[in-house]
């Protein structure tokens, strides 16, 4: 019997598989397809203090082995979430974390304080890395000084699990990872989407209304894997790896590179039950390799 559970500091996941924010709605969208209790956790859609209409259509462009998106954090705001969505999802038998985004430090702090009051939400994922919103998000994720301030102030008010989602759109991700750790983040999730662009050659126009957007899917996996490895070596807090994970082998690779848990993102769109398939696949892998617990995989990359 393999122990699939993993600990992200005090937060226990029944298995290392979570679903990534922005790819899993509020979990409800997947209830026809799968049993949410089969995975370690879900991170619900990016939530902001005020409602956001999101960017204009078109917001999506398919790329080789991936896609660009420019949704722009469309959501109805944290108060709507608390009143209308939370009551519907609070009894899901898995960890439900809320992804929180904002344009100012105050936005993040206020949203975190409101979500802290929700008993069944054991943590938040602070999104300082959305590349699709002009006035915010990524600005905090690419500057160590700005990141330091937002993590420090949210940490001062938020007492549950504080996961920080890092941007790959930086020169050295370990600088930001260490800053977040110093300011009290409990775990780091990475990577968010890579800033990219797509052009329609015939029309000679950009494919996205915002011109640039966030790249995700299997095409980003090697970059993500490298950043998880670098981050794992640079910090002591748990790392949650994501970026193009589409099957069990991908998930194992991220864990070997240092991830304590993983998030499945864009692959949910193509195969809505893939997160369950991966959770089962990890168990099978551990059995085949004689491991007693999935957590033994973390950082077990062999370099000899």
């Amino acid at each position: 019997m393999v122990d699939l559970s993993v600990q992200l500091k005090a937060l226990r996941l029944k298995n290392p598989v979570m679903t990534a924010s922005g790819t899993f709605g509020y979990g409800e969208e997947y209830l026809d397809f799968m049993d949410l209790s089969r995975i370690g956790g879900i991170i619900v859609k990016g939530t902001t203090i005020r409602p956001r209409e999101g960017n204009d259509y078109p917001r999506m462009a398919e790329t080789a082995s991936g896609m660009l998106n420019a949704v722009g954090l469309q959501n109805k705001g944290v108060n709507y979430f608390v009143k209308n969505i939370y009551p519907r999802i609070c009894d899901f038998d898995t960890n439900v974390l809320v992804n929180v985004s904002g344009s100012t430090v105050e936005d993040y702090v206020q949203a975190a304080e409101i979500i802290q009051e929700l008993d069944k939400i054991p943590g938040i994922e602070l999104n300082v890395s959305c590349p699709n919103v002009k006035e915010g998000g990524m600005a905090f994720g690419v500057s160590a000084k700005a990141l330091c301030q937002v993590v420090k102030e949210v940490r001062a008010v938020y007492r549950k699990h504080l996961m920080l989602k890092l941007s790959p759109n930086v020169t050295d991700i370990t600088v930001l990872a260490k800053t977040a750790e110093e300011q009290g983040a409990d775990s780091l999730s990475l990577i968010n989407t890579l800033l990219g662009m797509a052009i329609d050659a015939e029309k000679q126009r950009p494919k996205l209304s915002t011109i640039t957007g966030g790249l995700s899917g299997p095409c980003v996996k090697p970059v993500a894997l490298r950043m998880v490895w670098q981050t794992y070596k640079a910090v002591k807090i748990p790392v949650v790896g994501m970026g193009g994970i589409s099957n069990t082998a991908d998930a194992i690779e991220f864990m070997l590179a240092g991830a304590s848990a993983i998030q499945v993102g864009t692959a949910n769109f193509i195969d809505p039950v893939v997160s369950v398939t991966i959770a089962e696949g990890i168990e099978d892998y551990c059995q085949r390799h004689g491991l007693k617990s999935a957590s033994e995989l973390t950082g077990a990359l062999r370099l000899d």
Binding site: G22, T23, F24, G25, E29, Y30, D32, K45, G54, D56, Y57, P58, R59, M60, A61, M67, N69, V71, Q74, T266, N268, F269, P272
Partner: peptide, 17 residues
């Protein structure tokens, strides 16, 4: 026939105003 990624309401890409 808006461009879409998932088809079941998760990705929010196929929006119409």
């Amino acid at each position: 026939e808006n461009l879409m990624a998932c088809g079941f309401g998760a990705c929010l890409c196929c929006v119409e105003k």
